[in-house]
Amino acid sequence: MKIVIQIQRYGDYGDREPVKAEGATQNQADWPLWEVFIRSKMGLDHKHVGSLHAADAQMAIENARDVYTRRQEGISIWVVESKYIHASNPDEAASFYDPANDKVYRHPTFYDLPDELKAM
């Protein structure tokens, strides 16, 4: 089986035209893919929980409700069509993330203060 890498997917984007996977039958009957983000409790951020297929945004929200909140997982849903997600490139991980390693002064524990100091 020959596998062609399709670059149309969450976490896998570029500016190129998507490469059609071999034998793909993208037709009217196939709904586009959406990414789903759920906020679990009041105050917490929306979190990516997975994806699903839907014909439009309204349906995507309802499908997300039925698929991803069957066990009271959420109180708020965001959906975004997968093709609109842009992701960082893992090949650039070193230049993206390593520079933060030596910026320890961004963390509160960097500062040496006397124990007597309270409420800070």
Binding site: R9, A21, G23, T25, S51, V67
Partner: peptide, 26 residues
């Protein structure tokens, strides 16, 4: 119904590898 959900999660995971659900179902 949970099994439908599980199938859906797994198809989605496979879709990240560059194959569509339609192809897999086919």
């Amino acid at each position: 119904q949970d099994e439908a959900g599980h199938g859906l999660y797994l198809y989605s995971a496979a879709e990240t590898l560059g194959i569509s659900r339609a192809e897999m179902i086919d």
